[in-house]
């Protein structure tokens, strides 16, 4: 019994070690916020370990990333609510500070790529996608999950994944411009 627990514990440790960096970069890409991404990964690890670690290890990966994607969705929901509340209270005569603020990191596709900040440019472009398209792009393109796995993680049909991914890819291509190739 004790030996079994030790085996399971070391298996869990190895699994988390294997996905933690990937999970962090994925959460950062999904949220566009490094600090929030770390919180999401910590929360995902804890929830996964305490609630799902007794599931067969073959099921761990989709469960883990499903939790991660859902926590990222929660972040976007919270941010949307916060934004609505701020807009409600703000003086109509004053310009919206969010709308008038300069783009994060002075984002400009050409300059960003030329300066070797291609990843930042990519993250900005991904952050500008609608939620489902963002998830489909991260899972299908960056994480190289197949359609069925992506559908399971996103909780939608294969057809939806294909539609979201195709639209995301077209938007990313347009956003980053021709110079991104090569």
């Amino acid at each position: 019994m004790e030996e079994h627990l030790l085996d399971r514990t070391s298996e869990l440790e190895a699994f988390l070690r294997g996905v933690e960096r990937q999970a962090y970069v994925m959460a950062r890409t999904l949220t566009g916020d490094a600090e929030e991404a770390m919180d999401i990964v910590q929360d995902t690890m804890l929830r996964f370990s305490t609630r799902y670690a007794r599931r067969p290890p073959g099921e761990w990966r989709p469960i883990f990333f499903r939790i991660l994607v859902n926590r990222s969705r929660d972040f976007h929901r919270r941010r949307a609510v916060r934004s609505r509340v701020m807009n409600w209270f703000r003086d109509e005569d004053l310009p919206d500070p969010i709308e008038t603020a300069p783009a994060p990191r002075g984002w400009d596709p050409e300059v960003a790529v030329a300066d070797g900040e291609a990843l930042a440019a990519l993250e900005e472009a991904v952050a500008g996608l609608p939620g489902r398209q963002r998830e489909a792009f991260v899972l299908r393109c960056l994480e190289e999950q197949d359609v069925a796995e992506t559908a399971a993680i996103m909780g939608c049909s294969d057809g939806s994944v294909k539609t979201h991914y195709s639209r995301a890819l077209a938007a990313i291509r347009q956003r980053l411009g021709e110079h991104y190739d090569g």
Binding site: M38, Q42, M45, L46
Partner: peptide, 10 residues
């Protein structure tokens, strides 16, 4: 975070 999660599960 990993250590905390594994400890919590254990």
């Amino acid at each position: 975070a990993r250590v905390r999660a594994v400890e919590a599960a254990a």
